[in-house]
Nucleic acid binder design. Structure first.
Lengths: 348, 348
DNA sequence: CAGGTTTATTAAAACGTGTCAACGTTCCGT
DNA sequence: ACGGAACGTTGACACGTTTTAATAAACCTG
């Protein structure tokens, strides 16, 4: 009873060393640079580790090395399947490098974003992949000053050379959607989007307007903008009333939503009023989440390489961590229009 | 140049102490028990903290205290909106207590679950909320032995008194769905579910069978079971072929899916074959995620209090952390049948 | 005003790990 | 056989924080 583990004190590197009859330093070497230690002692240490069921303490480790082996991933909304897919890409890539991912959720609130960044600073995270709530880089720079480099995700125009970034060309996406609608003969288009300080929303709208201008119309005339509080289906459904305001004559011929969730909400709202897409109205979404293919009618939408987005962001971060003199990079993917059943030619 | 911050060494509690003209211990007190320190010195310290932009190092803190201030949340699939909602509940509740949540994804793989638990042990996490991939409690017990208590989520029958658990009564859910279908006159029912070692799937099936037996039929005759590899829409869509096998005469009159994703996939697959619910087949899902209300027809499903589930699990964990001699608790919510358009009376 | 009590602060000792200079051993070539 | 390189191992210290016992100062109380 006395020789067995009577107390419950957690076992540390010293206990292992004692058991294996070596110094703590050697145990550390076995754990971190096994090639430096003779095979026989290494095996002895490894056995002691097993027998004692030793698991190393990352607090001590990080304290000593000044750096943690986990990275942060700050997303705008855990609930959105778009981010879930991105998260998978980040996680897989980080995992390959032995880094753990701490997922943080800002819920589109600047205050929560700030809190999350503070947390990352306190943990001395190795780095972070960040989808910012706005274009303000103050927080980002602060975090970097604290020694935590960040890669921006889903933000196209980074002011100055403050960080790496990876994004999808939102202008091109809006343009493609706009051209598609115009080719179908639609002239009055409503844009349904979130707050203007989300860069994604703003730029997609610009793309849409560019398509309209290209066709010889005045965007200020042809495009109507409606802002929703949040970017989810509920907001989309509620917005339908405003979309339809003005009666059947003045009603838009198409709605371009900045997000699939919104678009699906719109489809639902139309159904509730006895209307439907594309018969009464064409509807276009953005992101091409799984859901888009599953609703009826299938949602025409602008696809983004979600998983690759996450993967690329993490790779950029890794390269920044490895390379001491590193130049920031700006990576931009191309979106792809996916045509399904929710859009059709305009029949007056 | 010499008086300003020439070097980039991170600022620690000692620097703050020096600046404020006090000892490190006092700074620590200001940070952790402000009431113990005189107002004048406290203000001096607080100013120094601001001026130096000090952020505390959680490695040092945790090392000293032997405990970290973050908890783990291990989910089966980040991509599933059901878990996203649960995560929100956990996160909110933990946030109120100043705990950070580390989100880990096992992707339904035992190996990844094990890796995640190891990570939590290395970080000496304060605790964990866990949705296990199977009923094997070995990992869980190991984690507890390492000093990280866990609360089980979504698992009803925990073998022995190994941990707190919170779940929704899966038997009752299956029963409610089954009765609903039987009342509509359906006799041949197919159950579509994931691997049998996921407790949720097994128990829901049992509930369904109980409903069938209750109506005087033999479950072995009336209920057909099809297992899918994964619990997502794609698997559901693929499974449709097998569901329909046997031709229109032997085709089931209803499909009960263990998951809304699956059910939505089935709806999609039916559509692709020129069939639809509820005309040709009634379809029932499980979870009542947002998606269920958005597809056409609306999905009849078994609702679970997702957010509350996460919140309750975290509260149980908190109570265990606070109370040294703590009895494990088993909390069980009641599910609620939500009837929408995907089910209807059987018309021969 | 002595003795006692409260209040504010400090110095020093941990916590578990990684690193680095130093040391001892072995092995090689001359 | 001897100098020296290569290899293995060690011991001590540093990392940033919290905590405890101890000290100093201020405040009561009879």
């Amino acid at each position: 009873m006395s020789s067995t583990e009577g107390t419950n004190r957690p076992v540390g590197i010293n206990d292992v060393a004692a058991r294996a009859g070596v110094s703590p330093g050697t145990v550390s070497n076995v754990l971190n640079r096994p090639e430096r230690v003779a095979e026989s002692t290494r095996r002895r240490v490894e056995r002691a580790v097993q027998e004692l069921d030793y698991v190393r303490n990352s607090s001590g480790r990080n304290l000593r090395s000044g750096r943690s082996d986990s990275v942060g991933l700050l997303v705008l909304d855990v609930t959105n399947p778009f981010f879930a897919e991105v998260a998978r890409g980040v996680e897989d890539t980080a995992g390959e490098e032995g880094l753990a991912v701490v997922l943080l959720n800002s819920a589109e609130q600047a205050a929560r974003q700030r809190r999350s960044m503070r947390l990352l600073a306190e943990q001395r995270a190795a780095g972070a992949v960040i989808m910012p709530v706005d274009n303000d880089t103050e927080d980002l720079l602060w975090l970097r000053k604290q020694g935590v480099p960040g890669v921006l995700l889903d933000i196209g125009d980074v002011p100055g050379e403050t960080a790496c970034s990876v994004s999808v060309d939102n202008h091109a996406g809006g343009l493609a959607a706009g051209r598609h609608l115009i080719n179908l003969g639609h002239e009055r288009i409503t844009y349904l989007g979130g707050p203007a300080d989300l860069e994604q929303c703003r730029t997609r709208l610009e793309g849409l307007c560019a398509a309209v201008a290209e066709a010889g119309s005045d965007p200020d005339e042809a495009v109507r903008v409606i802002r929703t509080a949040q970017l989810n289906a509920e907001s989309g459904e509620k917005a339908v009333e405003e979309v339809l305001a003005g009666g059947p004559k003045r009603r838009p011929q198409a709605v371009f939503c900045t997000n699939d969730q919104l678009a699906v909400g719109v489809l639902k709202g139309l159904g509730g009023r006895g209307l439907s897409a594309p018969g009464d109205l064409s509807v276009v979404g953005y992101d091409d989440v799984d859901l888009a293919a599953l609703v009826h009618p299938g949602l025409t939408t602008v696809g983004q390489p979600k998983y690759e987005l996450g993967r690329a962001a993490m790779q950029l971060l890794l390269s920044e961590l490895g390379d001491p003199d590193h130049r920031h990079e700006r990576l931009r993917f191309a979106p792809e229009l996916v045509v399904r059943g929710s859009t059709a030619a305009y029949r007056p």
